[in-house]
Amino acid sequence: MDSALEQELQIFAENIRLASLRAVAAAGGGHLGGIFSMAEALAVLYGDVMRVNPRNPAAPERDKLVLSKGHCGPGLFAALALKGFFPLEDLLTLNQNGTLFPSHCDRQKTPGVDMTTGSLGQGASSAAGIALADQLARRAYRTFLILGDGELDEGQVWEMALFARQRKLRNLVALVDLNGQQLDGDTRDICAGVANAGAMFASFGWNMLAVDGHSVREIHAALQPAAGVPMQPTAIILKTIKGRGWSRLEGKPKVHHSVVDEAQLREAEAEITRRIASLQAAV
């Protein structure tokens, strides 16, 4: 990866933060902690890795993404808007009456959203089904699955882990946003075992890579198709910080859901736009 692409993807990640922040603020609040922790992953996926076409979002010949931590939908919508699937200002209708942008992902409403999610764990299985469909239809495309670490409490994820290995779903890539926090608190105080997500996926027979989830360079390298053993699904553990990119949230306790008032919006916008400006200056 050259440094120009690296900077482009870093800027994309910050723009995902900015656009989802504005959408969540317009709605009054939302799950910014988990949106900000996966911003770099979304930027690498939609900014470079995934083969998708905003003018033909449902074409069978495309890479797919299932955001199983469906409450973080605004982050995905921001990436899609920046990619050209719909105008950026549409995001400001988030959760408004009659909106096409409900904060939990809805494949029937939002162009480019590949699966309906929101009941945690379920996106794991539907992603496996989509990957299986591509194999059956001999479509050489990949399915990316983003899981939260709190979500790993759900048994359905591990049912899927057995199934995907058995079916040799080598075109399935699960990215685990290991930000260490879920609604009620730190994962280590609730189901501490999820901190071992990498070892768990490896023991289920998956390829496993662990990267700095805020390094677009490391994520990009892990997402190259050559990485890992053929015939196995791949789990990429993203070591992340919940709320990354806004000092009011970053690394703080209880940032699963945040209410954003006007002053806080300005404060967060200022932090993010300053970073964007310095990244652009470096280009």
Binding site: S125, S126, I130, A131, A133
Partner: peptide, 26 residues
Amino acid sequence: PDRFFNCGIQEANMVGVAAGLSAGGF
């Protein structure tokens, strides 16, 4: 044999996989 999938004793995953298969055109 190529169009039959024994998912094992995991009804939740099986139904979710079926949803994904449908999303993928099956």
